[in-house]
Amino acid sequence: MKSLETYLRALRASGRKALVPYFVAGVTPHWVQHVEAAVHAGADAIEIGIPFSDPMMDGVVIQEAALRALQAGTTFDSLCTDLAKLSTSVPLVAMTYFNIFHHYGLERSAGKLQSSGMSGAIVPDLPLEEADQWRSACAAHDVANIFLVAPSSPADRISSIAKATEGFCYASARMAVTGKSNNTGEGARVVSEIRAVSDVPTYIGIGISTPEQARAASSVSDGVIVGSALVQIILNGGGADDVESFVGGFRRAIDE
């Protein structure tokens, strides 16, 4: 079992619901301080978005953040260098589109993730059918490859995905790109279908923008992922204090 999954299973066994904030690497010069603030406020793991020019699964907020990060010169290498400044014990999970790793080299990418302290990867445009080579590269470097399940996934696909995912299973609450706020949508149904075939930790993401939504989602799952709402605060010029207060609000709601 990958280190990430061992860690997240132990977290669940301790009775704690996981809170996983998402950051776009390089969106501001001090983005690593934002990550530290989130950990301080009670995040259990961090999703590190590696910016890509064509983020097909992302709405306008993360598109804008990715654009700013790229204009600031952020690269896979540069954000890994930035992460060396980060002192935290919580796991880091990379999130990006497949072309970044494809271009960098799959084996080299997995090695880079490992040496930079990222123990997992989410690649939303890499479905199970195309993932064999990437999974082999991850296997050699203790990187957990996390798959998504969508509300549209039929039972046979959910079963295959839940067996293949490592670390946790990412349950999309809605048929939408990131950043469309709503209720927790179909998250509960998706989670129960995953749980019927696997005991892998299952987190709900996409469409969670308020502490109330996070509380509802975490009550039917093992954790929640919060992306666009947090990235919006940073785009608006928010600093580490604002991040800490935002993440702290989610933490309290989940723990209530």
């Binding site: 445009d125 479905p127 059918e129 798959f147 969508a150 549209s152 039929p154 696909r157 999309s172």
Partner: peptide, 12 residues
């Protein structure tokens, strides 16, 4: 070629 799409679009 291949099929590099989000899981949400795979069934379609």
């Amino acid at each position: 070629g291949g099929r590099f799409v989000p899981e949400a679009l795979m069934p379609a």
